[in-house]
Simulated scan of single mutants.
Amino acid sequence: MTEQRIRELMATREAAMTARDATALAAQYVPEAVAFTLAPPLVHHGEDVAAREAWFASFDGPIEYSTRDLAITVGEDLAYCHALTYLSATPQGMPQKFELWFRSTVCFRKRDGDWLITHVHDSTPFYMDATMSAALDLKP
């Protein structure tokens, strides 16, 4: 049942991202959450609804967001999962959308009988050559 609950929460997260629902995303987080996301700054503290709404507004058209290869580990009061995550959207003023796959780890803590996100870590690999560029062309 607990693994199933984490799967449900991750599905809710995906739905909130594609629906641009900042409030639904924020409801999944503890106030003191720490997130290392793809967007600056280096560290985000808590889930800032206004900042997330501004991020959503920076895209024209739909936002595509999904995960695959979700692996879940559950303890009594702590759980975490990791997956490959797909994101595609069209930045305002750009002629076409971007798409990328990145790595995600989401950590949960049980509070008041349900699971809430305490930590998120997203990362994109980079080419360790002369370019030092993000490896945005990788696909699973």
Rank of each mutant, 00 (worst) to 15 (best):
P125I: 07
F102E: 08
G75T: 05
R103M: 13
F126G: 02
Y127I: 02
S66K: 10
H121M: 07
C81Y: 01
T131I: 02
L100K: 13
S58L: 13
R103W: 07
D60I: 08
S58N: 14
L87K: 10
T90A: 02
A50K: 06
W115D: 01
P41T: 09
R68Q: 07
E99V: 10
C107V: 04
P41H: 06
P40S: 14
L78Y: 11
F102M: 10
F102N: 06
D112N: 11
D122W: 02
A71W: 12
L78I: 09
L87T: 06
F98L: 12
G75V: 06
D69P: 03
P125R: 05
P95T: 04
C81W: 05
D112L: 11
K97I: 02
S66E: 06
A39M: 10
D77H: 09
F56P: 00
F36S: 01
Y65T: 00
D112I: 08
F98A: 09
C81Q: 14
H45V: 10
T105Q: 05
H44L: 12
T67N: 09
A89Q: 00
I63Q: 08
T118N: 06
P95I: 01
L100S: 08
D122C: 03
R68N: 09
L100C: 12
E76N: 15
E47R: 12
F36G: 00
W55M: 06
S66A: 13
A79H: 01
Y86A: 07
E53A: 02
A71G: 05
R52E: 01
T67A: 09
A54L: 07
T118G: 04
W101Y: 08
L100I: 15
H119R: 11
D114F: 07
G61D: 06
E53H: 04
Y80D: 08
W101S: 00
L38V: 07
V43I: 13
H82Y: 15
T105P: 03
H44A: 15
T37K: 02
P62S: 14
V106H: 01
A50C: 14
T85E: 00
M94G: 12
A39C: 07
Y127R: 12
A50H: 08
Q92D: 05
E53N: 07
M132C: 12
F56S: 03
E47D: 15
T124A: 10
F126H: 02
A130N: 09
H82N: 10
A89F: 03
